[in-house]
């Protein structure tokens, strides 16, 4: 009887422990999706088409063109900011720096910070900002682009709603989100860049995403 009890309690304990240790192996895929029919080896199959980040082309702080080709075979984190922003940007940059420090030198990982104030943030200003932040321009791009284009990209592709608001200090309010994008240009995570816990989650998720490619 006591032996049976021991076995049962062991089984229960084992179940509890194993349910706790099982970690999600894959991140969700965000955005719209649609089913498409395509031919594989002469057989018609249904496949899912996921929303991806559309083509773009911006100049970085070194006046080098950065587009989707620059991000081939990379995962990256994107955010929207402006250098003169006194509200949430310094926190976002501080948090992004944590992620950058973790993946510094990893050739599979890039960081993209789009300015939403090209009027003030010239390429020279961005260069100075990135230097003072002490980051490598080959891994962390500060991107300069036409305001309309950047706003549209943010709003329609990154789900991050950026809009002008004259009433707030700094002139432009934005959502402060970090978007994690995979090698297929799909959004795999959205994190509040002003929230330390969420950014810690992002740093962990980046490793989970990298592991997906390791397995193949």
């Amino acid at each position: 009887m006591t032996n049976k009890l021991k076995i049962y309690s062991f089984l229960i304990l084992a179940t509890i422990v194993s349910s706790c240790t099982s970690t999600p192996q894959k991140l969700p895929i965000y955005g719209e999706r649609e089913a498409i029919k395509k031919m594989v080896n002469g057989v018609e199959v249904i496949d899912t088409l996921y929303q991806t980040i559309p083509k773009f082309s911006f100049l970085n702080q070194d006046s080098i063109i950065i587009n989707q080709d620059s991000l081939n075979n990379k995962i990256y984190v994107a955010d929207f900011f402006f250098t003169s922003c006194p509200s949430i940007c310094p926190i976002m940059k501080k948090q992004m720096l944590r992620a950058y420090d973790k993946y510094k030198g990893n050739t599979e990982v890039k960081f993209l910070s789009h300015t939403i104030d090209p009027k003030h943030d010239s390429i020279a200003v961005l260069k100075n900002f990135s230097n003072k932040l002490g980051v490598n321009a080959k891994q962390w791009y500060f991107l300069y682009g036409d305001k309309e284009t950047v706003y549209n990209l943010a709003k329609n592709s990154y789900m991050s709603s950026t809009f002008e608001d004259r009433a707030s200090p700094g002139g432009i309010v934005h959502s402060g989100y970090f978007l994690l994008v995979d090698k297929n240009k799909r959004i795999r995570g959205a994190y509040d860049g002003t929230n330390e816990a969420q950014v810690t989650q992002m740093i962990d998720d980046m490793q989970v995403l990298l592991n997906e490619y390791q397995a193949k």
């Binding site: 509200s87 949430i88 310094p90 926190i91 940059k93 230097n131 003072k132 932040l133």
Partner: peptide
């Protein structure tokens, strides 16, 4: 705090 941080450390060589 947003700029100078909760510990008063500022931000790199910017703040």
């Amino acid at each position: 705090q947003n700029c100078h941080s909760a510990t008063g450390q500022g931000l790199a060589q910017l703040i």
